[in-house]
Each structure stands twice: as structure tokens, then as C-alpha cells.
Design a protein around this nucleic acid. Structure first.
Length: 581
DNA sequence: AACTCCGCCAACCGCGGCCTC
DNA sequence: AGAGGCCGCGGTTGGCGGAGT
């Protein structure tokens, strides 16, 4: 027989785990009644077997006297809710707090802090009589000195009869991971997928899990999920190249501004009352995820921590993790790679794009959102893990590869350079595919030294969001980069129809063009360009860029188009040129 | 036993969307 | 159209309790 200790004085919430212990699941509302029953018997220990969960929902119109966690409270209980509140507050541990905020109830200042069982009972009673919603009326009509928000939160997180309290089961943990992989930090959506669980629970679980794993230097997601989503990405996001240049630019260079633009455009609305439109954002994940993560069971909870010890420094590029602050609005390290298009391109994508999938429809916003939120992983991680395997290089190579295919003969990109680049890309991709996580520990790029340092000055590129304040704090250059990007994006009126024309705005395209290469030739005029380039891509970029530029300039379809002489401070010219393409 | 550190989690806060007037 | 209220979501905070020293 299990007993619930009633020594707790800070509300019911901390009783819940005890109640939940074992397979028994009862609601907190039921616990209210339990406590009431226990108070009547004046027992300090309540036998669980005596609990009756069936009565949790039906509350009497006038709550009978009930226990407020202490015998003193019991003796002070009256049938009047406000009196109960007063007594409860006087006896509750939050009395100091309550007194510190002034008069309680009756239109006075609203109480804050932990809920007492008396308040819980009042709220439960009110909801049972009037139903959910109209939370501001609770305070008016029930005597509770709590704001509507607080009432709603308390009800939703603790008093709802259909809540499942207690620790997450391994199955639920797996589900959370999968859902997070699919949705990012959409806790409410995740909670909707997990009946009986609240967004707060899930959020807390995730945050603590992230912290734990971060401390352990382990990846957030088990390799299986990474692999599954990676594969998923292959069959989902084949049309990214068709995304307007503005989007890619925003993606590629990221920033608080362009990022927000992108997210406002690409992320589904916060609310999705109408439907679960995103049910199939990642069909493979969504549908019977266990099928897609067959090996995940071997990583219950922290089981996967046993794996990938090889990645001693996980996601060094993730500023969130680096900071020990897991903040949210960014997708998780790999659920958030809107920053660089290159990081979004899986090897398979590159392959599929390279081989051309012209019929591929433009992804829906949701799918794009999914792409941004969930994908990338090995590559992004390897990118971030590997100083030698910058995503930028892949972007350049990819772009070269893509241009070769998409432009066909019109743009003769089938030069040796392109072939070499494509081969290198294939090689790199193959390497990535084969080595998977191992690459993290020893990511020897087939391209040897590369643009490794390109992004070293701006870590967010390797898998984090730009919209975090601390990212700016740590990487002040990002601000300047953002400004440059903003400037570019605002200077040129980009629309989807001109996406191809505006391709030159894509950073990878820029890299492949001779814009940068010519910068030195034009002397001081292009100091701005140099600065911008350095700002955008990091100081170390220059050296690496020369190589890239040299590579690309040789075939330089861009050069033929005459856009090689554009400078960042003359974007109107660039726009004009784009129109003439 | 006393103290500190850390994890967990309930609750608060700010923001933004929706709805009504 | 827009102002205000309501509601929900996501991020953050602070308290509690357990573990470690």
C-alpha cells in the first residue's frame, strides 16, 4: 500500500509524483478530493487504496471543508470560499508573499506564487460549475485572488481531470524527442500529441534533458532520429533551390531581421486551431515513428548518452549550447538550420538537386518549415563539429553543381572546375554519409583545408538561430553581418518570380561569382565589399574565398553575365543587372 | 550536521493572435 | 479600421528538495 505524505505544504503539485508513483494515475483534482477526505480522517498518511478517482470531476456546488495541507487549516475551514482563502493564505507558506502584495481578493491585488490546495479546490469547483474558459471571471465569481491567466494555467497544468502526472515513461520520452524533432519548441503542439501531458511538462522535461545532455557533451538527438530525419529530408526537400533568393539569402546569412522574416514566412502560425496541418510535416516521423526509429528503443532517455561519446564536443557551433542556455525560439541544433542553405543541403539533396528534379513542387510552407526546423543533422552537426568542413564550401560546391545542372548548356558550368567541384561534393557527401557521426570526431574533409574558418567567427551559422540576443553578444559580428544582409534584402525588391534572376544575391552564388574576386581590383571602391564580405562571412573568409572565387571564376557564367563588377554598395546596379539576365 | 550545488518543476511574464465592440 | 479584452504560447524565474562535500 502506498501512502501520500501530507507534510507538503506548498500545494498539491508536489504530491503528484507520489500519487503517480507506480502505475496508478490519478488527477490532481482527484487529489484535492483525496486531501479533503484525508482531512476528514485527520490522518497524516493517506492510503492510496482508499482514493476514489471517479469522484474527481464532480465537485459539489459549494466545496465542503477540505484539507489545506495542515491540520490548522483543517480546523479553520469554513464553507465560505473566501474565508477558506483567507485561512489558507494565512496558514500557507505563501502568507508572507501574500501579505507582501497587499490585500487579497475582493478586487484587491492578485495573489502570486504557489497555489494552495484551497485555491485549487475553489478553482476546481468553479470550473466544474461553469466550465473552462472565461478565466477572468473566475476571480470575480469565485473569490479567488488569482488572475485569469494564473487560473487557466493552474487548471491546465494541474487540475484538469485528464492530466497524467508523474514521470514520463520511456515511450513518452521517445515521443517527445520525436515530436521535438518534428516540431521544434512547439510545446503546446507537442502536448496536443500527448494526451494528458501539458506543454509545461514537456517543456521542462526537454529543457532539463537538453541541459543534461549538454553537460554530458552529448548530442540532443539519438543518431537514429538524426538518420531518420536526414533520410526524410531527402524525400521532402528537393525544391529548396526554387526558393526565392531572398529566402535563401535570409537563410544563408541569417539574422534577427531576415531570420524573422524567414520564420514569419516559413513557420506555421503559432496557432493551428483549424487543423493539424503539420501532421505530416515529416511523414516518416509522424507515422509510426517507431518504425522509423527502430533502434531508438535502445536509447531510452539517456541511453543514447552511451553512444556518440566519440563526439566529445557536441555542436560547438551551437551558441545556445555553448552558452549553456537553451533557448528556444531557435530550433534545436539540428532542428534549426535556417541559417545557411549549405547546411540545409544534405548530400542526398545535393544529389537530387544536382541531377535535377524540376518537377519537384515548391514545398509548402509547412514543409519548408519542417525543413528548417527539423532537418539536418549529420551534416549540420558535422559542419559545426568540423572546423574543416564548413557548410559554406558545400554551398559553393553545391551551387556550382546546381548551376551546372539547372542552367544546362546556357550556362556552361560543365567546366572542369564544376566537375571537380561536383565530384568533390559527391565525395564529401559520400564521406558524410558513410561516416555519419564518426565524422564529428575526425572530420577530414576530402577537400583538405577548406573554408573552415569562414564561419568560425559566427558560430550561429553552424546550427543555431540568429534571433537570440546572446548570439549577438557573443558574436557581435553577426550584427554587422545582419545589417549587411538587411541592406541587401531591402535594397533589392525581391520576389519569387525573379528568384532566378536574383540568384546572384545568394551568398553561395556570390562566392561563385567574381564579385569578391574583383573587389581587390577596384581598389578602395570595393573596400566596402571586402568589409562586407568579411563581415558576412568572417575574416578568415578572404583567403578561402580566393580559392573558391578562383575556382568559380574560371567558368564564371556570372562573369559572362556581367554581374561580376557589382559591388555591395551599388546594389541598384546589381538589381538592374539581374533584370537583364 | 551544516553547507553548497544542482535538478526539477510550478508559476510568472511578455508577447502576439483572435475576437468583439 | 482600430482599440481593448481575452486567451494561449513560449521563455524565464525562483523555490524546494535531494545529493554531494
Amino acid at each position: 500500500m502506498k501512502y501520500i505524505s501530507l507534510r507538503e505544504t506548498s500545494g498539491l503539485s508536489r504530491l503528484s509524483p507520489s500519487i503517480e508513483d507506480g502505475d496508478t494515475t490519478i488527477t490532481t483534482a482527484a487529489a484535492v478530493r483525496r486531501l479533503r477526505l484525508s482531512s476528514e480522517s485527520s490522518q497524516s498518511l493517506l492510503p492510496l487504496s482508499a482514493l476514489d478517482t471517479s469522484t474527481a470531476v464532480s465537485q459539489p456546488a459549494t466545496p465542503p471543508p477540505f484539507n489545506c495541507d495542515s491540520k490548522e487549516e483543517i480546523s479553520n475551514m469554513t464553507s465560505d470560499s473566501e474565508d477558506k482563502m483567507s485561512e489558507d493564505c494565512m496558514d500557507s507558506p505563501s502568507v508572507e508573499e501574500a501579505s507582501s502584495i497587499g490585500k487579497l481578493g475582493g478586487g484587491g491585488l492578485l495573489k502570486k506564487g504557489p497555489w494552495t490546495s484551497a485555491e485549487d479546490a475553489i478553482l476546481v469547483d468553479y470550473v466544474n460549475r461553469h466550465g473552462e474558459g472565461n478565466w477572468n471571471a473566475v476571480q470575480k465569481h469565485s473569490g479567488l485572488s488569482r488572475c485569469g491567466k494564473s487560473c487557466r494555467l493552474r487548471w491546465a497544468n494541474h487540475l484538469r481531470p485528464d492530466l497524467r502526472k508523474g514521470a514520463f515513461t520511456p515511450k513518452e520520452e521517445r515521443q517527445i524527442i520525436e515530436l521535438h524533432a518534428k516540431m521544434g519548441n512547439k510545446w503546446a503542439r507537442m502536448a496536443a500529441e500527448m494526451p494528458g501531458r501539458t506543454d509545461n511538462e514537456i517543456k521542462n522535461y526537454w529543457n532539463t534533458r537538453i541541459k543534461r545532455r549538454h553537460r554530458a557533451g552529448l548530442p540532443i538527438y539519438p543518431p537514429d532520429i538524426s538518420q531518420a530525419l536526414h533520410e526524410n529530408q531527402q524525400c521532402q526537400n528537393v525544391a529548396l533551390p526554387d526558393i526565392p533568393a531572398s529566402g535563401l539569402l535570409a537563410q544563408g546569412l541569417g539574422s534577427s531581421h531576415s531570420d524573422s522574416l524567414m520564420f514569419s514566412m516559413l513557420h506555421p502560425p503559432k496557432r493551428f486551431r483549424e487543423s493539424r496541418e503539420s501532421e505530416c510535416l515529416i511523414p516518416c516521423v509522424n507515422s509510426s515513428t517507431a518504425d522509423y526509429f527502430p533502434a531508438f528503443d535502445q536509447y531510452p532517455d539517456d541511453g543514447c548518452e552511451k553512444i556518440t561519446q566519440l563526439s566529445s564536443s557536441i555542436l560547438p557551433g551551437s551558441h545556445a549550447l555553448l552558452n549553456g542556455n537553451f533557448s528556444s525560439s531557435e530550433p534545436m541544433p539540428w532542428a534549426m538550420n535556417p541559417e545557411l542553405p549549405s547546411l540545409q543541403y544534405s548530400d542526398a539533396q545535393v544529389g537530387s538537386w544536382g541531377t535535377g528534379t524540376p518537377s519537384s513542387p515548391l514545398p509548402s510552407l509547412d514543409s519548408v518549415s519542417t525543413l528548417i526546423q527539423s532537418p539536418l543533422t549529420e551534416q549540420a552537426q558535422s559542419d559545426s563539429l568540423s572546423r574543416r568542413n564548413s557548410g559554406l564550401l558545400e554551398a559553393v560546391l553545391y551551387e556550382s553543381h546546381t548551376l551546372k545542372s539547372s542552367k544546362n548548356s546556357s550556362c556552361d558550368l560543365t567546366s572542369n572546375v564544376s566537375v571537380v567541384a561536383g565530384d568533390a561534393m559527391d565525395s564529401l557527401s559520400q564521406n558524410l554519409r558513410e561516416t555519419q557521426w564518426e565524422i564529428h570526431s575526425d572530420p577530414i574533409s576530402p577537400l583538405g583545408h577548406s573554408t573552415s574558418s569562414v564561419f568560425s567567427e559566427c558560430t550561429p551559422i553552424s546550427g543555431s538561430s540568429f534571433d537570440e540576443p546572446h548570439s549577438v553578444e557573443i558574436f557581435p559580428e553577426c550584427l554587422a553581418k545582419q545589417e549587411a544582409v538587411d541592406w541587401v534584402t531591402t535594397k533589392c525588391d525581391v520576389n519569387e518570380e525573379n528568384a532566378n534572376q536574383m540568384m546572384f544575391l545568394r551568398p553561395d552564388f556570390l562566392l561563385a561569382s567574381n564579385w569578391f574576386g574583383h573587389s581587390t581590383e577596384r581598389g578602395r571602391e570595393h573596400s566596402v565589399l571586402n568589409d562586407t564580405r568579411g563581415t558576412l562571412l568572417g575574416e578568415d573568409f578572404n583567403g578561402d574565398c580566393k580559392q573558391i572565387s578562383t575556382m568559380s571564376v574560371s567558368d564564371s557564367s556570372c562573369q559572362k553575365r556581367g554581374c561580376g563588377s557589382c559591388s555591395w554598395d551599388d546594389m541598384s546596379t546589381a538589381c538592374e543587372l539581374s533584370e537583364n539576365l
